[in-house]
């Protein structure tokens, strides 16, 4: 039984009592499924009419999927992945939200692609959940820092 020092033996042993985090995860999961399936649909049907917003939607959908898994899975590595993906989402919603206000033509696409992306206008098409979720996610991750690092 050789064990590299970098692999902390206690790493996976924390049975994460997710608690209220489960509520966060289900909202992430719904958003992940919603954004991804919508992007797949748009790629299959109206991709040529609005490449930028649809590509962005697809990327955001994949990032939401990874974030959902990272919140769900135990261990320090997934904890770090959760931070990265959630930060990316906050960055995305702030940048795309601001750009969509300044220059709607970038993300408008055709009339068929209403609201363009999940992040346009700070996620107004998704009840602003994309704006609130990363902040709640970060608060939750911070509250779990001791649990993850302290093993």
């Amino acid at each position: 039984m050789s064990r590299t020092p970098s692999a902390s033996p206690a790493q996976p042993t924390v049975r994460r009592s997710l608690g209220i985090g489960r509520v966060l995860i289900i909202v992430y999961a719904i958003l992940a499924i919603g954004a991804t399936s919508r992007a797949i649909y748009q790629i299959l049907t109206v991709y040529s009419s609005a490449r930028v917003p649809i590509t962005l939607s697809a990327i955001s959908g994949v990032v939401y999927i990874v974030a959902t898994l990272a919140l769900l899975l135990p261990g320090r590595r997934w904890y770090r992945v959760a931070w990265v993906t959630i930060s990316f989402e906050l960055f995305g919603v702030l940048v795309v939200g601001t750009l969509s206000l300044l220059d709607p033509s970038i993300f408008a696409g055709s009339a068929k692609v209403s609201f363009g992306t999940v992040w346009s206008y700070y996620g107004i098409g998704y009840l602003f959940i994309p704006l609130a979720l990363p902040v709640l996610g970060m608060l939750w991750l911070r509250s779990r820092r001791a649990l993850v690092a302290g093993v």
Partner: peptide, 22 residues
């Protein structure tokens, strides 16, 4: 199905909230 399955696996009050959100 997802929320219900989760509610059967982790039986605490947050699973009830999850059912509601679904």
């Amino acid at each position: 199905l997802l929320a219900g399955f989760w509610a059967l696996v982790d039986r605490d009050r947050w699973s009830t909230v999850v059912l509601g959100l679904a």
